[in-house]
Simulated scan of single mutants.
Amino acid sequence: MRQPTAFTVLAAVLLLGGCGAGPRDAASTTPPPVPAPAVTTAPTRTGTAFNPTDIAWLQLTAAMTERLLPVLDLVPARTTDPVWRRTATEVATTRRADLDRARRLLADAAAPTTNPHEGHDMPGMVTAQELTALRAASGKPFLRLLAGHLRAHLAQSVRIAEAEQQSGVQPATLALAAAVVRTGTDELARLDHLPG
């Protein structure tokens, strides 16, 4: 029996997650196509190779994080709740550090600087319409929206990081995936105890 390739595993996760070229449509029965990673096995300046799963995961992690940060930046102006403000600051600090690490690893892999997920909406990615709704809300309605988007982002981040752990090969990328799983799981547990 043939074992799935590293990219096949992450591609399946992305396909099930709904990464596609258009907006999410719950009524759609045909899953959207998954973009292929921009590079295959890539040697780095340090000599440690990245496989297609490493590259695809880093690119998707960067894209998802870039969509979440503007949401977290809204928190101070939309709620006075100190627990939510502190949580948003902590999550944003962690995600910015993860984004910096992902970008450095992509540079080390000589991966293209363009975002292959530009314009794609999938679980864990806040859409432009959702961001507009968040900007128009405040108080408890804002917190309900925020909690939903944050939970979706964290759950999807953990899910794809676990796929990277199973099929990636580059040690620094695997270490970042392990950190994403650990912090994301902790942050999901914290959400259960936040005021709503």
Results as ranks from 00 to 15, higher is better:
4 P>M: 09
4 P>H: 15
6 A>Y: 05
6 A>S: 15
6 A>N: 15
9 V>N: 05
11 A>Q: 13
11 A>C: 12
12 A>R: 14
15 L>M: 07
21 A>G: 13
22 G>M: 02
26 A>M: 06
26 A>K: 02
29 T>D: 01
31 P>V: 03
31 P>L: 08
32 P>W: 00
36 A>L: 09
39 V>Q: 12
42 A>Q: 14
43 P>E: 13
45 R>Q: 12
45 R>S: 10
46 T>I: 05
46 T>K: 05
46 T>Y: 10
47 G>W: 13
47 G>S: 13
48 T>H: 10
49 A>L: 12
49 A>P: 07
52 P>Y: 05
52 P>I: 11
52 P>N: 09
55 I>C: 15
58 L>P: 08
59 Q>N: 12
60 L>T: 03
60 L>N: 10
63 A>Y: 14
64 M>T: 03
66 E>H: 12
67 R>D: 13
67 R>G: 07
69 L>N: 04
72 L>N: 12
75 V>K: 04
75 V>M: 14
76 P>I: 08
77 A>C: 12
77 A>V: 10
78 R>E: 15
85 R>W: 05
86 R>Y: 08
92 A>M: 14
92 A>T: 07
94 T>A: 11
95 R>M: 01
95 R>S: 12
96 R>A: 11
98 D>E: 07
98 D>I: 03
99 L>S: 00
100 D>K: 11
101 R>H: 08
101 R>D: 11
101 R>G: 06
103 R>M: 10
103 R>W: 08
103 R>G: 01
105 L>V: 08
106 L>Q: 07
107 A>V: 13
107 A>C: 02
107 A>D: 11
110 A>N: 15
111 A>E: 07
112 P>T: 09
113 T>M: 11
114 T>K: 06
117 H>L: 07
117 H>Y: 13
118 E>P: 04
118 E>S: 05
118 E>V: 09
119 G>V: 08
122 M>F: 03
122 M>K: 00
123 P>S: 00
125 M>I: 08
126 V>T: 15
126 V>S: 05
127 T>P: 02
127 T>M: 00
128 A>D: 04
131 L>Q: 06
131 L>V: 07
131 L>F: 08
132 T>S: 04
132 T>F: 03
132 T>G: 01
133 A>V: 01
133 A>Y: 00
134 L>A: 03
138 S>E: 10
139 G>E: 00
140 K>R: 06
141 P>G: 04
142 F>H: 09
143 L>V: 09
145 L>P: 08
149 H>R: 15
151 R>L: 14
153 H>P: 09
153 H>Q: 09
156 Q>R: 01
157 S>T: 02
158 V>I: 01
158 V>A: 01
159 R>H: 04
159 R>E: 03
160 I>F: 01
162 E>T: 05
164 E>R: 07
164 E>N: 12
165 Q>M: 11
166 Q>H: 15
166 Q>V: 14
166 Q>L: 12
166 Q>W: 08
167 S>I: 05
167 S>Y: 05
167 S>A: 15
167 S>L: 02
168 G>W: 08
170 Q>K: 13
171 P>I: 05
173 T>V: 13
173 T>S: 15
173 T>R: 03
175 A>Y: 12
177 A>E: 06
177 A>S: 01
177 A>C: 06
179 A>F: 04
180 V>A: 00
182 R>H: 02
184 G>A: 02
185 T>P: 01
186 D>F: 07
186 D>W: 05
189 A>L: 06
190 R>C: 07
191 L>N: 07
192 D>E: 12
194 L>V: 11
195 P>M: 12
196 G>T: 13
